[in-house]
Amino acid sequence: MAIVLDALSWAMLVGGALFVLIGGIGALRMPDFFTRMHASSLTDSLGPMLVLGGLALQSGWSLETVKVLAILLFLLITGPTATYALGHAASVAGLKGGTREYRASDPREPRA
């Protein structure tokens, strides 16, 4: 039983780290603001979920688990809110999605 828990928690830790890495690469490589935000939102939703879940499995039934789950709940509330606030601010400020090449090739866009 202990080995199964251990393997599961390590799989979750490694998986979470992988998602954070993917989010980081995405934030660097994506072409425009909104796709970048989309990539980086991985690092504050799925990444911590897996990492903190793995940590909770490691610590077993104890006060630490409760603390870890409280942190997870906090992150699940604040992360998407921060992403929303960022995206909303960008769209209110008039930022358009897509790269310049994409917008140039889009027939619906007015030509400059």
Partner: peptide, 12 residues
């Protein structure tokens, strides 16, 4: 006027 940050912030 920003509903979601406002509600979440007040809860926190």
């Amino acid at each position: 006027s920003h509903l979601i940050p406002h509600v979440v912030g007040r809860v926190l």
